[in-house]
């Protein structure tokens, strides 16, 4: 465990130090630019090399710790995770008739399930409204684009966080209800396990598969004729520097 913690600290430190160095280098470059060297390079190969060298001891230490862990046979624990729904399903398979309390719990679970998704969907509404409004994507110059993306992230991030929080809470409450149902089920009269056979929906799936396959083939053929295949090639054989984050 001690080695695992050491390794974690080293990994976090590596990333922290590297991030700080990259940001510092950028800030130094910006200051250099403001000093009246607009056409000079902010980064150079040498600067990047020196940066990597600064991180190298920490990186080597981390690699060393991994090697030591491997030699000593230290492994991260990978315990199976409990799942309230599975535990419930396993328990109720031995039960002939669910009790009234169990049915009530199921009703609660359904409410949390629907509520969670309704909450999630409600939080998505402002995001969708923001995204479908062309006025939010007005600026076309470089600085404008940064502002637009910044504003978009600022608008969508809180709603996304809220959506995830709502969903998490509802999942938590649903799991609590599942646990209560499992406890109730344990006190019920038990029977031999009956195996359920899933209803076959093979035919529908096959029809959908054929439809999607036909649509896919049609799209590919159309794409070959309308030039979209050529567009993919042209984009792929040219480097758009900003698109890969170079600048």
């Amino acid at each position: 465990m001690f080695l695992l913690i050491i390794q974690s600290v080293l990994c976090v430190l590596c990333v922290l130090v590297m991030s700080v160095l990259v940001v510092r280098l950028f800030l130094e470059g910006q200051a250099y630019k403001l000093d009246g060297h607009p056409s000079e390079w902010i980064y150079t190969r040498e600067k990047a090399g020196n940066l990597l060298l600064t991180c190298l001891p920490l990186f080597l230490l981390s690699v060393g710790a991994t090697v030591v862990s491997a030699v000593m046979g230290v492994k991260s624990s990978s315990k199976p995770q409990k799942d309230a729904e599975i535990t419930r399903d396993l328990t109720i398979r031995c039960i002939k008739e669910p009790s009234a309390e169990m049915l009530a719990e199921r009703s609660i679970q359904k409410r949390f399930h629907i509520g969670g998704w309704c909450g999630f969907a409600a939080c998505m509404v402002p995001i969708v409204l923001y995204c479908v409004n062309p006025a939010h994507f007005d600026s076309s110059d470089a600085e404008g684009l940064e502002t637009v993306i910044g504003a978009m992230v600022l608008h969508t991030a809180p709603w996304t966080c809220l959506a995830i929080a709502v969903l998490s809470v509802c999942l938590l409450l649903r799991d609590k209800s599942l646990e209560r149902e499992t406890n109730l089920a344990k006190n019920c009269k038990k029977e031999a396990i009956s195996s359920k056979t899933a209803a076959s929906s093979g035919k529908t799936v096959m029809i959908v598969r054929f439809a999607v396959l036909a649509a896919a083939m049609l799209c590919i053929i159309l794409g070959m004729f309308n030039g979209s295949m050529r567009d993919v090639l042209y984009k792929a054989i040219n480097i758009c520097t900003e698109c890969i984050g170079l600048g």
Binding site: V15, V23, G247
Partner: peptide
């Protein structure tokens, strides 16, 4: 290529590390 690096690369590099 080092000449064109700037905020975009710095930001994406940090995102990649995280």
């Amino acid at each position: 290529y080092f000449g064109m690096l700037g905020i975009l690369f710095t930001r994406k590099f940090v995102i990649m590390l995280i």
